[in-house]
């Protein structure tokens, strides 16, 4: 089998596992898995921004929040969820470009600071502008969608709905990565001087990655509102933005599987470590500092190392004289 076939096979098995996983588990685990799926989508978006074109965004929570509030506002007024997707995607794409454009004009890395300031502002809008967002009480009774006549009101049904979203996003990003756009992202990251010399508009492509990353944050927000069925400002704080960034790094920035692992370590793992809940975020951040010190390539980088080690060992044992 060549590596490509192997990868498709692994992806297929992974999907089957994710479909079979919740069967027989209690409702609460369906909620946790749904949260994992939508967190992964937000992290995949941030991986475009940080992992592919090397720009730090500290405002991903704001985009998730905008997606969630757009969904709550529209669906509680009877609009279909599809409208929320379109508006959340478009609004976050536009805002992402609107922040990225000025940030990329300066030679200094301004994006982290502009996104940080944006996140702070958006949080205040959520909390203070009661007429629109319901203030600290938020918006209740966000409905869950029906798809092809199937209701997703039950936790398991909604998990499959999230999984479907995750599959679509993964496929889209997979396509993006193989396309000339993906090549341009990789090229401008590897050698911006050469990229410009061969006609790649490094600023435009960087801006596209930032905007798409923000838009995926919005998509995650749509699912978030429908999962919890209410939105309030609290979750969309700087802590969420930082956590999402740390998930991308933890998984391995720029790696397709990184966000899946990073989000699993942030969302699913603490459920098994209930006793450590208060200290979990602290531990996660400490672990990231250690990763940066010893294995900046993250969990996927560690995985690669193990794989090469195993392959070397097996090659050595195959060669060894009997």
């Amino acid at each position: 089998m060549n590596p490509a076939t192997l990868r498709y096979a692994a992806a297929g098995i992974g999907a089957l596992v994710l479909i079979a996983l919740p069967l027989g588990l209690p409702d609460y685990s369906h909620y946790v898995l749904s949260l994992w799926a939508l967190t992964t989508i937000a992290a995949i978006g941030l991986n475009l921004t940080f992992g592919y074109v090397g720009q730090i965004s500290l405002g991903q929570a704001a985009f998730v929040g905008i997606g969630a509030y757009v969904t709550a506002l529209l669906t509680t007024r009877g609009w279909p969820l599809l409208a929320a997707y379109v508006l959340a995607f478009a609004a976050c794409f536009a805002l992402g470009s609107g922040l990225g454009y000025p940030a990329l004009r300066a030679r200094r890395p301004l994006l982290p600071f502009i996104t940080l300031a944006f996140g702070t502002f958006v949080f205040l809008v959520f909390r203070n502008e009661d007429w629109l967002t319901g203030g600290i009480y938020g918006i209740n009774r966000v409905p869950r969608p029906s798809l092809f006549g199937l209701s997703t009101a039950a936790p398991l049904g909604f998990y499959y709905f999230c999984l479907f979203n995750l599959v679509v996003v993964t496929a889209a990003v997979w396509w993006l990565r193989r396309s000339p756009w993906g090549r341009a992202f990789a090229a401008l990251r590897a050698n911006p001087l050469r990229a410009e010399a061969v006609g790649i508009d490094t600023r435009l492509y960087t801006l596209i990655a930032i905007a798409l990353g923000a838009a995926l944050g919005g998509v995650a927000g749509v699912l978030y509102a429908a999962l919890l069925q209410y939105v309030d400002p609290t979750p969309f704080s700087l802590t969420m933005s930082v956590s999402l960034l740390l998930m991308v790094v933890m998984g391995g920035s720029g790696r397709s599987l990184g966000p899946f692992l990073g989000a699993a370590a942030a969302v699913v793992l603490p459920e098994g470590l209930r006793f450590a809940q208060n200290y979990y975020l602290l531990g996660y951040a400490l672990a990231v500092i250690l990763l940066m010190a010893f294995w900046p390539a993250g969990l996927m980088g560690l995985f690669d190392r193990l794989l090469t080690m195993v392959m070397k060992l097996s090659a050595a044992s195959a060669k060894a004289p009997p």
Partner: peptide, 17 residues
Amino acid sequence: LFPQLTVRDNLIAAGQE
């Protein structure tokens, strides 16, 4: 060059735009 990319991807990147 784009050191992390393959030879073929280096070449295609140089022409795609």
